[in-house]
Design a protein around this nucleic acid. Sequence first.
DNA 1: GTCTATAATACGATAGAC
DNA 2: GTCTATCGTATTATAGAC
Lengths: 200, 200
Amino acid sequence: MSCETVSKRDQILRTAWRLFESQGYHATGINQIIKESGVPKGSFYHYFPEGKEGLAVEAIEAISEGISNKLDEVCTSQDDSVVAMAGMIRHIAQRLEETGYREGGPLTTVALETATTNERINEACQQAYGKLHGVLAGHLEEDGFTPDDAAELSTTILAGIEGGILFSRTFHSTRPMEQLARQLEETLTRQRNQAREQVT
Amino acid sequence: MSCETVSKRDQILRTAWRLFESQGYHATGINQIIKESGVPKGSFYHYFPEGKEGLAVEAIEAISEGISNKLDEVCTSQDDSVVAMAGMIRHIAQRLEETGYREGGPLTTVALETATTNERINEACQQAYGKLHGVLAGHLEEDGFTPDDAAELSTTILAGIEGGILFSRTFHSTRPMEQLARQLEETLTRQRNQAREQVT
DNA sequence: GTCTATAATACGATAGAC
DNA sequence: GTCTATCGTATTATAGAC
């Protein structure tokens, strides 16, 4: 049977994703993943013959797809990409709060843990963040920023968000994310208006 | 003998600090720490009866002291705190590059790994980041920002730096940190000038 | 394809000789 | 105070029955 309502493979992937997000890569063991997903160990290695590392790479790719689509969706539904960004940040803050500050930054911890210690996972993280950066920069361009400014701003914005996630998780508070949203909204709006003036 | 040129205790602390910084908390084992610091296992548990967790807390406290002093020093030596911040960011970028993107964000990874899974270490991280935030906010106030603005800006700046460290480490490039420095310099200078105008 | 039992190894921590 | 040998218990991964 290669198909069910939710395949066992997806069940493993989902559980792993959640655990990597809340605990990090090294603190999450295969035993915990199979226990919480209710899948026997043998099946796990049948679906993921490359073990924990292969699982992590696939989980990151799935996460990447999900959050890039989400970001694109939010930015498209709002004609003002700056307002959309602030909304996105507040949305993450809400998710952080709801989960007891365990979930809300799906890649942050794993990316840092593996940046210089696991080449395959690091590559997956680079692709994931690269994709996010591309989506955001694209929307900023559509919104009046020059390509160079949009690219540089995207980096700064994403860095702010990742750092905000770090602080909100560390202090168990949505405040850092809220302050970030307000600051970005203010700064970016001014910066964009300036950019638009130069064009006309 | 409780005193040498560099006590064994400090040697352990230093090695642990470096390994936690580059690999994270969970990926760093006691065995590796004692091996690289050249201290027998028995001695380790003599000096750190609370084991790995106690060691981490002490390492974070030592790190906190070091980077807060460094930040204070840099901000004091420069009469313009905004320029000082940009210099600080470029200094971190240089250290990241020199160490192959292994060192440069001493707390970032550990803080995320333990945010919701280890209360003692999380508290140590809160204190460390709180101290940094206080130092930075103080200098921004001296530099013309209102207390409220200074506090909120400090959060945003530190978040940007932590996120910048994440991206520079992930992409093995100083570019994210360089872009961040430029953006902050520009944005903060404008914001400060506006704040000063409102006073007069 | 599915699952259990187990291998091989590493972990943090300790006991006890010196 | 200093160090070695070792204890349980984790870990990832596999072998082999069904």
